[in-house]
């Protein structure tokens, strides 16, 4: 049954290799001059890639009950809600709302 899935060595070692390679790419990318917003996007995409490998293989989400994956995605969703709505304030502090201007 899914709860007792044994992850094969091939997957575990493969995941570790992928993570190290992605780390090297992340560090390497930081030395290349990428214009401002894109350097952050590249770094974060690589971080999300690594996070997916850890969650999917090391934490066994691929073989696990879907509810656990949902829990993780929910935490992400609510983090996005929190930062997204907070930014609506902090980024627009000095901007008058269009109806009033």
């Amino acid at each position: 049954m899914s709860g007792h899935h044994i992850i094969s060595l091939k997957y575990l070692l493969g995941a570790a290799t992928a993570l190290v390679v992605l780390t090297i790419i992340t560090v390497g990318a930081s030395f290349i001059e990428i214009p401002r917003p894109f350097d952050l996007i590249v770094a974060l995409s690589l971080a999300f890639g690594k996070a997916t490998v850890v969650a999917a293989i090391f934490m066994g989400l691929i073989w696990d009950k879907k509810i656990n994956t949902m829990a993780l995605l929910f935490s992400l969703l609510f983090f996005i809600i929190m930062i997204g709505i907070t930014l609506l304030d902090t980024l627009y502090r000095d901007v008058p709302f269009w109806i009033y201007s």
Partner: peptide
Amino acid sequence: FLVWGHHMFVSGQSELSTVI
């Protein structure tokens, strides 16, 4: 989870967020 800012209408948060 989407409405917490209605406690902060006079706190000095941005006008955009008060409306939303």
